[in-house]
């Protein structure tokens, strides 16, 4: 392809967008609407998963030791736990640490009355899990280990969180499927209306001896540009409203602030921008390519 032909094609694509402004507008609006819903949904989903994950990380199993256990054995148990696949982090909390943090948290200045550590037997391991659903396996294992007196776990939290995670998975697949089919339907409709206007134009070009590639290129470029525009618009809108919504939720539901841990907009957009652009351009390309093809057989 000559460079002049390339620029000519590019120019025709751009001109054509403005020439058929209502069709272009309708297409951009359709793609925008779909990608806006997609972006919105993605932002909610990502945050939900993020919140669940943060909560999961907070879930821990605590292990207490039998009386009079030797320090070597404690270290040995610690190593054994660390080697388990379910475990992400193990922290040793000595009796002093436990008492200090208890004092700070609950007693404050009233702690002066205690001369010796009432939590002398409270040295423990705080174990954090990679995946909450594996808590049961770990607990069963820990209970069988010699030297462990007690295993404290939070069964209810673990079950709830893994349940929520699965639910999010199903719901997301469902909504994405619905969104996709709706957008394909809307776009193919819009493109078909737009193309029927130009059926004659395509036929004329073919009579003069234009190749399919030559006829198709401006349409495809037009489709790609419309797709890009259709992706940028919702990205901009989501960017603007995201922080406001997060702020609003934080103020409105202050009680939950420790639980609600929102992702920064940058993290969301690191994924959302490339995916939205790819979807927009892809929809524009495929839509125009396929629809023009139907009219090329002249």
């Amino acid at each position: 392809m000559r460079i002049s032909t390339f620029f000519y094609t590019l120019k025709q694509g751009v001109i054509s967008i403005f020439k058929n402004k209502w069709f272009s507008l309708a297409s951009v609006a359709t793609i925008s609407a779909c990608l806006f819903l997609f972006g919105l949904f993605y932002a909610i989903l990502a945050n939900f998963q993020h919140i669940v994950k943060t909560a999961e990380e907070g879930v821990s199993v605590t292990v207490f030791f039998e009386e009079g256990i030797e320090d070597d054995r404690i270290a040995e148990i610690g190593e054994m736990i660390q080697k388990r696949v379910e475990v992400s982090k193990v922290t040793y909390v000595s009796a002093e640490d436990a008492w200090n943090s208890f004092k700070d948290e609950y007693l404050g200045e009233y702690s002066d009355g205690f001369t010796e550590n009432p939590l002398a037997d409270s040295a423990n391991y705080e174990i954090y899990l990679k995946d909450v659903s594996l808590q049961g396996d770990l607990v069963t294992y820990l209970e069988s280990v010699e030297g462990i007196r007690q295993v404290n776990k939070s069964e209810i939290t673990a079950n709830t969180l893994s349940g929520v995670n699965a639910l999010i998975g199903y719901v997301s697949v469902g909504i994405i499927a619905i969104l996709l089919s709706v957008s394909v339907f809307l776009i193919s409709n819009t493109v078909t209306i737009g193309i029927s206007v130009r059926k004659e134009e395509i036929a004329i070009m073919k009579y003069i001896g234009a190749t399919d590639f030559f006829v198709r290129s401006p349409f495809v470029i037009e489709g790609i540009l419309i797709g890009m525009l259709g992706a940028l618009l919702p990205l901009g809108i989501i960017y603007v409203i995201y922080n406001r919504v997060v702020e609003y939720v934080m103020v409105k539901f202050q009680v939950l602030t420790t639980l609600l841990n929102f992702m920064p907009v940058e993290t969301i957009f690191a994924t959302l921008i490339p995916v939205s652009m790819a979807l927009g351009i892809g929809i524009g390309f495929v839509g125009s390519y396929i629809t023009v093809r139907r009219h090329l057989r002249v």
Partner: peptide, 29 residues
């Protein structure tokens, strides 16, 4: 080819309509 109904590209001016035939055979601008 010339048709009874002319078959010109109606949004393009006279120059562009004629130039199009040259563009498809990649004649330099």
């Amino acid at each position: 080819v010339v048709f009874q109904d002319f078959r010109l590209l109606k949004d393009w001016n006279v120059y562009e309509n004629v130039a199009f035939a040259q563009r498809i055979i990649q004649v330099p601008t």
